[in-house]
Amino acid sequence: MPFLKDIEKYNSLSIVGLEKNTGKTECLNYVLSRLRDSRKQIALTSIGIDGESRDQVKQTHKPEIELSEGMMFVTSETHYAKRRLFSEVLDVSKQSTSLGRLVTAKTIHSGKVMLSGPANNAEIVRLIADLKTKGVDLTIVDGALSRKSLGSPAVTEAMILATGAALSANIPQLVFKTQYVYDLIHLKEIDSDLKTKFRGIENGIWALDKTGEVKDTGIASVLMIKKEKDKLFQFGTDFFVSGAITDQFLDFLKSQKQVNQIRLIIRDFTRVFANPETYYAFVKKGGKIQVLDKTNLVAITINPVSPDGYRLNSDELKLALETKLQVPVYDVMRIIQEMSE
């Protein structure tokens, strides 16, 4: 049973697709089906809205999430009302999301459900902690990588990444794009006492001065860097950036003489929105990026079929990824097929 042993060590796991149709939902259903026989209490939730049938635009098959008896799940009131299973309400949140309050429930009879969940990191962390007090051993978060989302799957202890032909129909290109995310996930985590200093900061660019004190550079966001670049280096070369890291920002830093001393600290790897070329150029010049929250990548799953029907060679893709990346790679659909044969 691949990678499930690894999962059992963690309290929380997110499953993230690098692109639509990279097989995230199949991966999730596979993990759930494998965990069915373990004695662990599993709970499932999502970041923001998911399970929605937006893929009907592309007319591709989009399976819903199948929960078996005894599994817990958290979803919004709106989606709870649409559930296709029988379940017991255990709790309702006091805070509301755009789809109503969050319902925590336990499956009485197996069936399908649409998932939605908290929209920001603090709420996800709180929810995972709350589920733990309700006896949950492992919370699985159906995650998304999105610039729009304030919530990041990186707050979970472990992560499975789903990639595939939907990202690129060319194997070297697909490997390159996947490796980029792999490298970002492996960005170094900062010391825990430094974490507490940055944890509450909501916006702007902050610097760490020689004495280790956190100072506001007065630059409201990386988008303002062109206008206010003179302020950047007033305290030093260690920066905490609360928002996104863009191409423009890395390009600017790359061309500064201090570039090899620069350390950027970001919330987690999902905050990097720069192109891989720009990122690698910055790193090559000696720039460093570190994160507040780091997750452990336990596996990569692949879906060799693209939404328009193009099919890559599964073995070739698996081999190409495993050669480059130090993580097990699985074709989940193939495993499922082989099992049923």
Partner: peptide, 8 residues
């Protein structure tokens, strides 16, 4: 009432 309301 729905189940959530009844729960409450």
């Amino acid at each position: 009432l729905n189940d959530v309301e009844l729960f409450e």
